[in-house]
């Protein structure tokens, strides 16, 4: 059973997750048609910047985060920005969007000069997230858990981060049992996505280098 305190924690995270989203005007640009590869590149750069700002605003609401050592806050955000960005965009991709929008988005990304060998793992990840049909609470908690990963580079006080991540994992585990009684492996599958996210991190670094070159 989820305790009252755990329910309150979950509510704080979900409210912050819903409050901090990419501004509508920025997101709308993604759906305007006819952009050249260069314009797509600039648009995706603007989207990435906006997602990082949204990520920081969301993260400030995670109980205990702002009381962490300041440099550790930077290390956690820097270490998780790419993963949190892919987690969030995966959820955008798997939402029921008006017909055609997903295709327009996919087309835009395919035509932005990103190499194929990076595209495939990214869209595979979007598909595997979509198949999980996560509810909002699961998405918000998984994002918070991704950010509070203790073993990011340059994090000095890993125990302090673990003390923040632990209660999140516990609430998410209970939530998965309640939400998916017929799927005992569901929680494990969610955590499996975090491992997949880490490989995307590696691809993303390579993708940026190749993007800069062409």
């Amino acid at each position: 059973e989820i305790t009252k305190a755990q329910r309150a924690l979950m509510k704080v995270i979900v409210d912050a997750y819903n409050r901090h989203k990419i501004p509508q005007d920025v997101a709308k640009k993604l759906l305007q048609d006819q952009y050249s590869a260069e314009e797509n590149f600039l648009l995706l750069t603007e989207m990435a910047t906006s997602q990082v700002q949204v990520l920081v605003e969301f993260t400030k609401n995670i109980p205990g985060f702002l009381s962490l050592n300041h440099e550790d806050q930077i290390a956690l955000l820097k270490g998780s920005a790419v993963e949190a960005m892919f987690l969030r965009s995966a959820q955008v991709f798997s939402q029921k969007m008006p017909n055609g929008h997903t295709e327009v988005l996919e087309e835009r990304i395919r035509k932005s000069g990103i190499s194929e060998e990076f595209m495939t793992p990214m869209f595979n990840f979007y598909k595997s997230i979509g198949e999980l049909h996560m509810i909002e609470e699961e998405q918000a908690l998984l994002t918070a858990i991704t950010i509070l990963t203790p073993d990011r580079p340059f994090v000095k006080d890993q125990q302090a981060v673990e003390r923040l991540q632990e209660p999140m994992l516990e609430v998410l585990r209970k939530l998965c049992v309640l939400q998916h009684p017929q799927e005992p492996q569901y929680f494990a599958r969610l955590l499996g996505r975090l491992t997949e996210l880490r490989t995307l991190n590696h691809y993303h670094a390579e993708m940026l280098t190749s993007w800069r070159m062409n």
Partner: peptide
């Protein structure tokens, strides 16, 4: 605008709370 700042700059700026480009 923020979009040509590095990742860490954007994070530091956002953490300090001033978001204007």
């Amino acid at each position: 605008p923020a979009s040509n700042l590095g990742l860490e700059d954007i994070i530091r700026k956002a953490l300090m709370g001033n978001l204007e480009e």
